[in-house]
Write a protein that binds this DNA or RNA. Structure first.
Lengths: 319, 319
DNA sequence: GTGATATAGACAACAGTTGGACAGCTGTTG
DNA sequence: CAACAGCTGTCCAACTGTTGTCTATATCAC
C-alpha cells in the first residue's frame, strides 16, 4: 500500500480530529505528551495539524482502549499491529463490553458519533442501535439528525469510498439507521388536519436515507408524513400525493448527479400534481439539477436547516 | 507446533483476560496464588500481563472446572493433558433436549390479511402498521409470518404484476412490513453463545423482504441474527461471517431467476467461508439455481417451514 | 478582541495489587 | 450422623499505578 500525498499531508486541525475520533482535545494532547502516540505537524504558531494517517491511528488506538487495552502498552504499536490487535479483540471478545453503559454520563454528540462508527466497523447492530437510541434520548431530534446521524452517514460514505469500509458495514448501518429514523418519524402526528408531506426519491435515485432524514424532520415539525422510499416514477408519486391529499412533495437526490431523465421526471411530476402542491428538493446530489428545479418552481433546500426553516414558514406549527 | 513470538509475548492486561475467559479478576489471582496455574509477566508497576498461551490455558482450565473438575487437581496439568481432558468431558456431556415451539391459539389470519391489503391500497401506513401489530400480538410469530405477511407479500406482488397496484403502494407496504419484521427480529437473543446466522441477499438480488422473513424466523428460534440486507458481494458476506463468527449463511433469492453470475458468486462465497460454515438458500426464485446449490453443498430450503425444521435440527436450542 | 488552541501541572476517578476473611460446599472421620 | 477440615469462589480494605479531565495562563489566527 503506497501512501498518497493526501494521506500524509497534515490537513486536520484539532477540532476535526475531535469530531472524527470522539477523543477530547485534552486527551489527544495527553496521549501525545505521555506516550507519543502521534507527532502531528506544527504550524509556525505551534498549532497541531494531523494527517489522515494520524487520525486513522488514533481511531485504532481508541478502539483498542475501548476493548480493554491499556493505552500505555499499545501506544508504541504500528498501524499494522494495531489493526491486527483490534481485529483480534473484535473476534475474540466473548461478550462485547457494554460500550453504552460507560457513556451514559457523557452527552457529547461526538462520542455518540464515534461509538456509532465503532459499532458499524464491528458489525455490531445491537451496539449501534443502542448508541443511536441513547443519542436520541439525550439529544433533541434536530441535534440527533444534524450532529450524529448526518455526520455518520457522511463518514460512512467517505470511508466506504476510501475502501476502508465494506459494503456489509454500510448495509448494516443503513439497516439500523433506517429503524431509528423510522422510530423518530413514527412518533409524529396522526392529526388528519395537520399539513401532509409526501417524501420519496424520484426514479433512478436509489439512496433513500436522505429521504428518511427529511421524513423524520418533517414529522418532528408536526407534519403528517407519507414516506414512500426510493426510486418512484413521477406518475405514481403524483397519484399518491393526490390520494393522500399531500400539501408538499419532498424529493431527495443524492446519486447519480447526471441523470438526464431527471428533469423530465420533474416536469411530469409538476404537471401531474394538483396546482396547490409544492415541490421541495434536497440532498447532496441536488445541486446538479438546479436549473431543472427552477423550471418547475421547486424549492431547492440544501441541508436540513433550510428544510426546517421552510417547513416552519410554510406552516408554522412547531411541535 | 512451534510458538510464534506473538503467542508467548505477554500482551494482555487482566481486563482482556477476564473478557476472554469469563473468569473474574479475583479468581484469576486466587488461582495464581494458590495453584500457580499461570505466571503472568509483571510490568514495572506490578501489573500482570498474560500471554496467549496463558489465556488458552485458563480457558481450558475454566472449561474443565465447569465440567466438574476440581481446580486443585487439574492446576498442574499441561496444555495437552488439559485438552484431552476437556475433549473427554465434552463427549460425555449430556445433550440438551429440544423443546418444540409452542403454538399459541390462532386468531383469524384472513381478517388481518384483508385489512392489511385494504390499508395498502389506501396508502394508509398507520392502519397497515396497526393491523400487522395487532396480528403480531394475536398470532404466534410463525403464524404471523406464514399466514399474514407471506401471503400479503405474495398478493401485493401479483397485484403489482397485474398492474392493479402502483409501485407506491408496494413501497409503502414494504416500508411497514420492514418495520414490523425488524421489530420481530429485534426481540431476539443477544446471548453471545447462541448460534449465529448471517442473512443477506447475493449480488444482483435486490428484493430483501424474503431475507427479512428468514431473519425474523431465525431470531424466533433463538439464533443470533446478523441481518445485512440486499445485494452483497460474496467476499463481503464471507468477511462479515468470519467477523461475526456466524455458523450459517442464509441467502434469499427472488429475482432475477436467470442471473448467470450467481453460481459463480456462490462458488466464491463457499471458497471464502471457513470450512465449518453452512450455507442455506431459499426464496421464491431459488429453484432456478438448484444445480448451483448442489455444487457448493448449500442447503436448499424452499419455504419457511423447511427453514424452521432445518434450524431446529441443526441447532436444537429452545427459545 | 474573541474564540480556539497551547503548555504545565494538579487532581480525581478508576483499575489493579495484596493479604486476609469468609461463606457455601464436599468429602472424611470419629 | 455430626463435626471437622479442606477446597473454592467472592469480598473487603488499604494501597499504588494509570488515565482522563481540569485549571491557570499564555499564544495564535481570524
Amino acid at each position: 500500500m503506497s501512501l498518497s500525498p493526501r494521506e500524509v499531508e497534515p490537513r486536520h486541525p484539532v477540532r476535526i480530529v475531535v469530531q472524527r475520533t470522539g477523543l477530547s482535545a485534552d486527551l489527544l494532547r495527553a496521549w501525545e505528551k505521555r506516550y507519543q502516540v502521534v507527532k502531528p505537524h506544527r504550524s509556525p504558531g505551534g498549532q497541531r495539524y494531523y494527517s489522515d494517517i494520524d487520525v486513522n491511528r488514533l481511531r485504532l488506538l481508541q478502539r483498542a482502549v475501548r476493548a480493554g487495552r491499556a493505552i500505555s502498552r499499545i501506544a508504541g504499536l504500528s498501524i499494522d499491529e494495531l489493526e491486527r490487535l483490534v481485529r483480534e479483540d473484535d473476534e475474540q471478545g466473548i461478550q462485547r463490553e457494554a460500550t453504552p453503559a460507560t457513556d451514559v454520563a457523557a452527552g457529547a454528540p461526538e462520542l455518540f458519533l464515534s461509538n456509532a462508527l465503532i459499532a458499524t466497523e464491528q458489525l455490531d447492530a445491537r451496539a449501534l442501535e443502542n448508541t443511536l437510541r441513547q443519542a436520541a434520548m439525550r439529544l433533541s431530534a434536530d441535534h440527533l439528525l444534524d450532529e450524529v446521524i448526518s455526520p455518520l452517514l457522511f463518514t460512512i460514505g467517505s470511508l466506504w469510498h476510501a475502501g476502508r469500509l465494506r459494503p456489509t458495514n454500510e448495509h448494516l448501518a443503513t439497516q439500523v439507521i433506517r429503524r431509528v429514523l423510522g422510530w423518530i418519524t413514527e412518533v409524529g402526528t396522526s392529526d388528519p388536519r395537520a399539513p401532509a408531506i409526501l417524501v420519496a426519491t424520484p426514479s433512478g435515485q436509489n439512496h433513500e436515507l436522505g429521504a428518511m432524514l427529511v421524513a423524520a424532520t418533517a414529522s418532528q415539525y408536526g407534519w403528517r408524513v407519507l414516506y414512500l422510499g426510493a426510486n418512484l416514477p413521477s406518475d405514481d408519486i403524483a397519484a399518491a400525493a393526490v390520494q393522500a391529499r399531500a400539501d408538499v412533495v419532498a424529493l431527495s437526490i443524492v446519486f447519480p448527479t447526471d441523470d438526464s431523465a431527471l428533469p423530465g421526471e420533474l416536469l411530469r411530476l409538476k404537471k401531474a400534481l394538483p396546482p396547490g402542491v409544492a415541490i421541495t428538493v434536497g440532498g447532496s446530489g441536488a445541486s446538479s439539477y438546479k436549473s431543472a428545479f427552477e423550471a418547475v418552481g421547486a424549492q431547492y433546500l440544501p441541508g436540513l436547516g433550510q428544510l426546517r426553516r421552510w417547513l416552519r414558514n410554510s406552516h408554522p406549527t412547531p411541535v
